[in-house]
Amino acid sequence: MLGLSDDDKPRFLGRRIAPGLKLVALAIISIVLMMVDNAHDSLSTVRGALAVALEPVQMAAEMPGDAANYLKNYFDRGNLIQENEQLSQKVLLLQGRLQQLAALQAENERIRALLASASSINQNVLIARILAVSPDPYRQYVKLNKGSSDGVFVGQALIDAHGIMGQVTNVTPLDSRAILISDPNNGIPVEVNRTGLQTIAQGTGRSNALTLPFLPNNADIKVGDLLVSSGLGGRYPPNYPVARVTKVVHRPGEEFLDVTAKPTADLDRGREALLVWNSNSNDDPPAPDNAGKSGQPPAAAKDDASGASDNKAAQ
């Protein structure tokens, strides 16, 4: 180990520990740790503390990219002006649509009230910056600059301008980690917008492809179909675009179709994302098991007493 000189190597009852024995002990410790980590959330404080200690390394790794971005913006004034123009046009356009939205939302709520439906389309949003993408090419997640002190909680959905990106899986006070829909461990309940067909889209480990493994051979689905989140299972908010079908293969003799879809969100390019959650969570899913451990109810929902208390109740 670090700092040990030759004569004070690890000893046990006066004998030197054989390296093989050391390895076996390490293996046992590792396996126990992995099992505990998998089953409980009890290691998250240790992980959080170590993550804070390793923050400088992470920041150093981000620096070249950030610096290059900064320099590019600094020297590229023409580009900035152009971008600014585009953005203000976009703002105008969106504000125009927003005026309609307010009226539509009110109408929608009245109609829903008539139907005695408890669901709400009111959604709170919080802008988060994407600090880092997974350096491990086989796991798809991003690190966000908002943590439990900003009201982020486990299970919150992450979207960008074009669709659903993923959901929050770990929260520390200052930052959080979200799994992307393209992670092979992630499945998202979707429906085909054209037909209402329900299915599940599963990540593949590549940021540009999801698979739909559970569609029977006679399912009505074709290339170009938009998949939107169905909200079933409760983890993801309903009716956000998720992916567009890019490939449908009928395999003779197989029971299921081979369907591939491309996520509509920019999973590997964006720098900013939105965290969304329902302020009125009557028909909300039971919050994920470990949400309680991650701390406070969302801060942004504090001004909305019902939202905050509902969240607590759900936990």
């Binding site: 180990m1 390296p19 050391k22 992995m34 998998n38 993550a51 390793l54 992470q58 997974s134």
Partner: peptide
């Protein structure tokens, strides 16, 4: 003499923390 499996294990934990992989996966 100084940097054996134990030190390597500790070094691997750093990767687990940064990657968000199961604790001690890279350590092992």
């Amino acid at each position: 003499q100084r940097f054996g499996p134990i030190a390597a294990w500790l070094a691997g934990i750093a990767i687990d923390v940064l990657y968000g992989t199961p604790f001690a996966e890279h350590g092992l």
